[in-house]
Structure formats: structure tokens, C-alpha cells
Design a protein around this nucleic acid. Structure first.
Lengths: 227, 227
DNA sequence: CATCTGTTGATTGGATCCAATGTTAAGTCT
DNA sequence: AGACTTAACATTGGATCCAATCAACAGATG
């Protein structure tokens, strides 16, 4: 059954968390996390019929889910050809870092004055979790949650949603990156330094570290796409 | 016929530009521009049946269009209640400016070295067009195109898409803003200064003007939401 | 032999029908 | 009279069916 059509969609059906109220949302979430975690490789064509069968729904909720994911740039739609999981490209990856570098320091700077001791503790916990975690998919999520925890009090929901989105897209590349680099201790030093600077309410130091953190990650990752 | 259900959807049917290949896309574009240009007020409930009748299609392409617009944050979906045009809020507006201020200078700086004489001429043409234009809806589009024309050569498609999105969302507020302020000569001075700086390849000067331009617009607009 | 064309199969787009849910309003009971 | 229950309606969510489009392949023609 795993040689269906290049990918075993049935494996996606075990949706975690709270069961969504609508089938459309159910499909949307399952596909979304599957794509983000790299479980459906870029370029995979998404046949509506196959997905409908895998999720045991009709084609309609599948179509709605695909439309939503298209608007999130996770897949590409061609009028009468269907949907394909969006490709990863060096250009796209570079752009993601460019955007993160512009947005995240702003979020961090605005958030630092309002961070509580609890927030900082949780951030440190996440760093510890990352040290323990070995699965690449979950590591990306922990990294995302760590960054977001420091930006949480920026008081700009729209900015945060945007940053979150960039971080999730970054996940797709990070996963790819880690898979080739083996386990990395990454920039945990940077992470710790950021928390320390935040605790000291030193906005300047924290943003400098963050920018360098992103720049280094950008350079590292760029190498994997030089081909 | 204009007292249908609070809004005359039939007036949207005259879609400009190239006719889309699919009904879904047709509906999506029409609704999108209508919302952006403020022709459908925030908070308006979008009944699928009414839209389908107005566009002379079935409810299905309408549903797909609504899903896409939801993912673009132009309307809000509630499971069994339906879609409502997204509200404008002071917070959201402030966030939009925050994001623009972070992203646009980056795009401009990267684009300036590659701008051609033609690009600059077109930018100046757009400024002239804005002087002549009186309709608020179109003015917003011209303003958007002006900004984008200066960023066009940034070489970062993803960044540009994001900036374009912020500018279109900004349009909704700009329209609201202009409607109360009467005709304004706005920041055409800033626009001219930006083109001049770009022509001189003076990245520093251009980005400074742009940042101030955005800051001033942010402060101006914020007043209208103090209530 | 290459190219063009017509035909068949696969897949998506759209329409209609039915089920599920939410809302409203009437009616009943305290 | 006020609050709760329940029944009708309106609206959305989902399934199935049909039409339109695209891709692949076979055959004809230069």
C-alpha cells in the first residue's frame, strides 16, 4: 500500500490534537503539517481522489483544503492540472531569511520590556527540550516555539502571525538542512545569549544576537543549495 | 435590486482585466478587489447563495473563493455561521505600518542599484497619475504600484509578494483615511524625493525618506481610530 | 521518419441534492 | 411576566453526478 502513487497518503490520517469541527479543516491541518514536516516531498502531485479516499471524505472538503493551502503558498495550483506541493528553492530560502531578519528584531525589541520571569523560564525550558530532541520535525517546531515565546509580548498580533508563518516556512528548509548536516548543536549559544539579554532588558544586545543568529543560519543553509 | 441584503453584489459582476480561466478565480478576484476598494464594508456577511446568484454560478466556486480570501485574512470564517468581511482595527492598521516599515526599506535598498531609467520614468508617471486621480479606490492602487515599481528589482520575489500584500491591506485603511480627510496632496513630496534619491543611487537617503514617509502615514492614520 | 491529428482515458471544475448545524420565534410552564 | 423548551426556518457543510479540460497514445499523412 505504500507504493500507491509515490506517496502513502493513508499514513496522514492519524490527526493529532483536537478533532476539528469540519472535515475541510481536518484535511487542511493534516496536509499542512505533513507538508511542513517534510512528510510529503516537494513536487508531489496531490490527486483529489486519492486524498479523499485516504481521509475517508468526499472530494469537496479536499478541494477547499487545497485552496486554503494554496493561499498559504504551501502548494501550487494550475487550473486544470491540479495541485503540487511547493518546491523548495535557494531563492525562496534566501528570501525567507531576508524577511525574518527584517521582522524578528522588531518583534523582539517590542516584546522584551514586557517579558515576565515565566516567559523567560519557558524559553529556557524550550532550549533544554531542543537539546534532548532528536527528531528533526519536532526540533523545528521547538525552535519555532522558542522564537515565538520571546516575541509573544510584542503587542502586534498581525506581526506575530507573519513571523510565525515565516518560521514555519523556515522549518521546511531547516528540516532539509539538518537531514544533511547530521545532529547539530546549532546556535543554542545564540539562543541562550538571547534569553540572557532579554532577561537583562538589553534590547540592543538581544537584537544584535538575533540578527547574527539569522545571518549565520542563512549562510549555513545557503550552502546546501549551491548546485 | 440594490436593497438585496444590505449590499448590491450584482454591481461586482463587471470584472476588469483578463477573464479568468475558472469561475472560482473569477469570483475570487471580484470579491477581493471589491473588499480592498472598500465597496463591501467590513462586517458585511457574505451569503453563499446571494453571491452565487450575483455571479451567476453555483455555490461551489463561491465557497472555494471564500476559502482563499479567508487565507488572505480578507474575511473571517466561522464554521457553521459563514463568512464576514474582516473588520478594520486600529491595532491591525498599526501592525501593517510596523511591518511595512521593516520590510519596504529592505526591498528598496536592494532594488535601487538595479533600477533602470525606464523604471524611474514609470515611477514618475505614476506620481503624475496620482495627482490627476480623484477616485480613492484607484488612488490606492496607483500608490501601491508606485511603491512596488521602486522595489521591483530587489531580486526577492517572496519579499515582494509580502510587501505587495501589506500594501493592498494598507489600501483598505488609506481609502478610509482619505474619505475623511478629503483630497490630500499626501506625501507626493516624499514620493518625488524617493525617486530622486533612487536616481542618484543614494540608498541611504532613499530609505530614510521612505521610513519617514511610512512613519508619518502611520501617525496620520492612527488619529482616525482614536475613538 | 517526423509531424500532425483525432480519439480515449484520467482528472479537475461546476452543479445539484441531501445532511448537519445554527438561529429564530412561538408556545408552555413556573 | 419571564425563562425555558421545542419546533420551524435559514444557511452552511458534504456527497454525488455531470461537464470541461488536459495528457497520452495511436494512426494517418507529408
Amino acid at each position: 500500500m505504500s507504493t500507491e502513487d509515490g506517496f502513502d497518503f493513508a499514513a496522514l490520517v492519524a490527526g493529532g490534537g483536537d478533532r476539528p469541527r469540519t472535515a475541510s479543516e481536518f484535511v487542511q491541518r493534516a496536509l499542512r503539517t505533513a507538508i511542513l514536516e517534510g512528510r510529503i516531498p516537494p513536487g508531489t502531485p496531490l490527486r483529489q481522489e486519492a486524498l479523499a479516499a485516504a481521509f475517508d471524505v468526499s472530494r469537496m472538503p479536499v478541494r477547499e483544503a487545497l485552496r486554503q493551502l494554496e493561499a498559504q503558498a504551501l502548494l501550487e495550483f494550475t487550473p486544470h492540472k491540479g495541485a503540487v506541493v511547493a518546491e523548495l528553492s535557494a531563492q525562496d530560502q534566501a528570501d525567507t531569511y531576508l524577511i525574518r531578519r527584517a521582522l524578528e528584531p522588531v518583534a523582539l525589541a517590542r516584546s522584551i520590556p514586557h517579558l515576565t520571569r515565566d516567559d523567560l523560564d519557558r524559553a529556557e525550558d524550550l532550549i533544554a527540550d531542543m537539546d534532548r530532541e532528536s527528531d528533526h520535525g519536532r526540533l523545528g517546531e521547538l525552535n519555532r516555539r522558542f522564537h515565538l515565546s520571546l516575541y509573544a509580548h510584542a503587542g502586534s498580533p498581525k506581526l506575530l502571525r507573519l513571523v510565525e508563518r515565516q518560521l514555519t516556512e523556515h522549518d521546511r528548509y531547516l528540516r532539509f538542512h539538518l537531514a544533511m548536516m547530521g545532529r547539530d548543536r546549532m546556535s543554542q549559544d545564540d539562543h541562550l545569549a538571547m534569553v540572557a539579554a532579554a532577561a537583562a532588558r538589553d534590547i540592543e544586545a538581544a537584537t544584535v544576537v538575533l540578527q547574527r543568529h539569522i545571518d549565520v543560519a542563512a549562510e549555513d543553509s545557503a550552502r546546501f543549495f549551491d548546485r
